[in-house]
Design a protein around this nucleic acid. Structure first.
Length: 484
RNA sequence: GGCGGCUUAGCCAAGUGGUAAGGCGACGGUCUGCAAAACCGUUAUUCGGCGGUUCAAAUCCGCCAGCCGCCUCCA
């Protein structure tokens, strides 16, 4: 395959060559389980879900690891705040994470390891770092010595001198050098702890990912991913710890996704504009949210606002409408022996788009072009069998299209008729009119139209429109839908 | 202060050397009693500005302007 991936490590698009032919090891930093997941988490999780799905579709044997950080300062603080056992709190938010991600149609990774299940791996790794001279014990803590690792900064492009002069580094007497970071933290009174050669304590933030990735994928593996903010210091530190301990190269390709802004502002707790996935899904179809998240390139910033999410919803409906049209023209038993270009070679065109550093916007463009071609056949053939491609041709195109939409993008999983019907009447409850009343008014209007009383017919239509109901007259009578 | 990125139509957004995908919106047309939906057509002689390299640049180089991210927990 001709997959190219933009590698943060080299700042270039590079051909993807797996360490072991036919196999892929992929590790993505998951969430710290102390709160509900927001739209930013959704972007990262959906992106790597699509990457995982694409690698699987390419016939690769993928081992996909996504961890949970279930012991950390934030968890301890939140637990104290709520008067809840920290372990209970962590488990609760693991469940919430799964609830949201299942709703978003995210495939479960091969393994979802938790930091607390890997304390022994972590301790072994720290011991190895002490043995190799990359770490030192300091009063119950263990610190990583940044200056001991000569290539420190290679991922984020930082020089250690610049970092020191940046002067934003935390001062800590236990550190020999201000840049050093904790591998193991001695437990304070009342804090959760595990016993270790250095006394009771818990792992630092970065070490768990080194320990768990190497545990499941070996010292060298293919892809390591996460949000752009994790590049430094988290991933930089992971490299230092892992390569320092093993002496072998760590992850080969580093993939980082851009941030989601909310109405052009950075999403942050202080601005109070953090959007939870749970809340968004109350008003937005999960597939529309996926479509939105995949509508721009993964490394670009993405702005969440009323327009962008509405466009995604409209777009999803358009794709489903095309699916429904396709079913109809398939049943028409056409005799045309060729397909329009927009419906030809779909597999190779989708592959070309995804091979180019997972260009999902391009992939979506192919779907929209195909939809337009389907609609065109639908309306312009006028039922003329000589203008409709033969069913087997249409079926092939439809299968390719649906295959990519479902298997890779994770959309169009519903029955088109059911989806459209559901969308048509979604939100009726809030309009102050029942479906029976609508039906009744529609019947009245049909009568009026039969007798060519268009004044009354239009009055009824306007009245319904005021309520938010849109009427569509078709050859088989009138239908209604809730105006979006 | 250090490092990195971005700037493409009214809006969103692909495109990294060969002459501007796609979506939303708007306008005109077909259809309709009129609409709606759907389809067709139009909507960037041009890619922040100024120079340079080249037969050829949105794409490469330089300078300038504006915006953003990271350097501290953060997807």
């Amino acid at each position: 395959m001709g997959l190219k991936i933009y590698n943060t490590l080299t700042r270039k698009k590079e051909p993807f060559v797996p360490v072991n032919p036919g196999k892929v090891g992929m590790y993505v930093c998951g969430v710290t389980v102390y709160d509900m997941c927001h739209i930013g988490h959704a972007r990262s999780v959906v992106l790597f879900d699509v990457i995982y799905r694409y690698l699987l579709k390419s016939g690769l044997d993928v081992t996909y690891i996504r961890n949970f950080t279930d012991i950390d300062d934030k968890i301890i603080n939140r637990a104290t705040q709520l008067g809840e056992d920290w372990k209970h709190l962590a488990e609760r938010f693991v469940k919430e994470f799964h609830f949201d991600m299942d709703a978003l149609g995210v495939k479960r990774p091969s393994i979802e390891p938790k930091a607390t299940d890997h304390i022994q791996d972590i301790i072994s790794l720290i011991s190895a770092l002490i043995d190799t001279g990359h770490a030192y014990e300091a009063d119950g803590d263990v610190m990583f010595s940044v200056t001991s690792f000569s290539t420190y900064g290679k991922l984020s492009g930082k020089k250690t001198e610049d970092l020191v002069s940046g002067a934003r580094v935390e001062v800590d007497e236990k550190k020999k050098d201000p840049l050093d970071f904790a591998l193991w933290k001695a437990a304070k009174i009342g804090e959760p702890f595990w016993n270790s050669p250095w006394g009771p304590g818990r792992p630092g933030w970065h070490i768990e990912c080194s320990a768990m990735s190497m545990r499941y994928l070996g010292p060298t593996f293919d892809i390591h991913g996460g949000g752009a903010d994790l590049t430094f210091p988290h991933h930089e530190n992971e490299i230092a710890q892992s390569e320092g301990a093993t002496g072998e190269p760590f992850a080969k390709y580093w993939i980082h996704n851009g941030f989601v802004n909310i109405r052009s502002e950075k999403m942050s707790k202080s601005l109070g504009n953090v959007l939870n996935i749970r809340d968004i899904l109350k008003e937005t179809h999960p597939e529309a949210l996926r479509l939105f998240l995949l509508s721009s390139h993964y490394r670009s910033p993405l702005d969440f606002n009323d327009t962008s999410i509405r466009e995604a919803s409209v777009g999803l409906e358009r794709l489903y409408a095309a699916c429904a049209s396709l079913e109809e023209i398939e049943e028409a038993a056409g005799r045309l022996s060729s397909l329009p270009v927009e419906l030809s070679d779909l597999d190779s065109r989708f592959r070309e788009a995804m091979d180019d550093d997972f260009n999902t916007p391009k992939g979506l463009a192919i779907m929209f072009e195909a939809s337009r071609a389907i609609n065109r056949i639908h309306t312009e053939s006028g039922g003329d069998k000589d203008k409709i491609p033969a069913p087997d041709l249409l079926r092939k195109a439809g299968n390719e299209l649906a295959g990519w939409a479902r298997d890779v993008f994770g959309i169009l999983n519903e029955n088109p008729q059911d989806f459209l019907e559901k969308t048509r009447r979604s939100g009726t409850d809030e309009l102050g009119i029942t479906e029976d009343q609508i039906r009744q008014l529609l019947d009245e209007r049909s009568e009026a139209r039969k007798t060519r009383n268009f004044k009354l017919a239009d009055e009824i239509r306007d009245k319904l429109l005021e309520k938010g109901i849109l009427i569509e007259d078709g050859p088989e009578g009138s239908t209604w839908r809730v105006k979006q």
